[in-house]
Design a binder for these strands. Structure first.
Length: 271
DNA sequence: AGTGCGGCCTGTCCGC
DNA sequence: TGCGGACAGGCCGCAC
């Protein structure tokens, strides 16, 4: 479910409730996420105070004196700020209960998400270490993408969705960014000019900025930490718009499956 | 080494 | 109304 704008929306929502707060206890109702929740998480955390809430790609990192919680929301995860006494519903797997009797509640029906613990720098964790730059990192520019694309025969869509290339771009925003920059999603990554890659990096930042501004995209069930949906779905230019007229040229939006992922594009505007 | 795909899960929707 | 199958916002891990 959540891509970078949704994770950033959640990060901004939970940060004021977490910073400086002390964790009273960790309630685990279901330990089987993508990987089992490590015992260290619930033994080390009580008594710790939250010092930082940061985002790296689609990971949320909650820092305390003793280490870091690494959170990934997979396809269906959400985090809500609630009174700790709120009855848990189906798929509410974990509560971080704070001493002020609020809690951060993790719900994840599909359990593709993860909740991990590290006492080292989270950036050195095997899941985070291989990640490429953030989309707003100055080194993420046209030259960077062009250089890394050389010799790559894979489709540009799959190239930009690869976290080693750049973080945070999932299926929706890959579709949107490629539309905005006029690049066909199936085009070979290694056969795109520097000029067009410059446009793509700008398109990516523009699309992500606007999506964050709108509180993310809710197609069916994304909600922020207060339970509010995002409003970017109304601004999508191609995603989920099969057969609707292209906003630029009126040709019907097309759909195909590319690397097992739903892909929307305008066959006239994107080459 | 780069690439493609199976698999992890539940919920929903659609056609029969 | 029930049932099977396809599909959904991610991404690891393994084949080739």
């Amino acid at each position: 479910m959540p891509e970078l704008p949704e994770i950033e929306t959640i990060r901004r929502g939970i940060t004021p409730y977490l910073l400086g707060q002390t964790i009273a206890q960790v309630v685990i109702r279901e330990q089987r996420l993508r990987w089992p929740i490590p015992a260290k998480l619930y033994t080390a955390l009580p008594g710790q105070t939250v010092r930082a809430v940061i985002r790296r790609g689609k990971y949320l990192l909650v820092g305390t004196e003793g280490g870091w919680i690494i959170v990934h929301l997979g396809m269906s995860g959400s985090l809500r700020i609630l009174p700790a006494a709120t009855p848990a519903q189906r798929h509410d797997h974990v509560d971080l209960v704070l001493t002020d009797q609020t809690c951060v509640r993790l719900r994840d029906p599909r359990r593709f998400g993860a909740l991990l613990w590290t006492s080292e720098s989270p950036f050195k964790h095997p899941l985070l270490a291989p990640l490429g730059p953030e989309p707003w990192d100055p080194k993420f520019n046209g030259e960077y993408l062009y250089r890394h694309a050389q010799g790559k025969v894979r489709a540009v869509k799959s190239f930009i969705m690869d976290g080693r290339t750049v973080v945070g771009i999932g299926n929706i925003y890959a579709n949107e960014s490629l539309f905005v920059s006029g690049i066909h999603p199936a085009r070979e990554a290694g056969r795109i000019s520097l000029e067009r890659y410059k446009r793509l990096t700008e398109a990516i930042r523009q699309v992500l900025d606007e999506a964050i501004d709108q509180g993310g995209t809710t197609l069916r069930d994304f909600v922020d930490s207060q339970g509010v949906p995002g409003y970017f779905a109304g601004r999508l230019k191609v995603y989920n718009r099969l057969d609707a007229p292209c906003i630029r040229c009126n040709v019907p939006v097309r759909h195909r499956r590319l690397d097992q992922r739903s892909t929307y594009y305008c066959s006239y505007c994107q080459r």
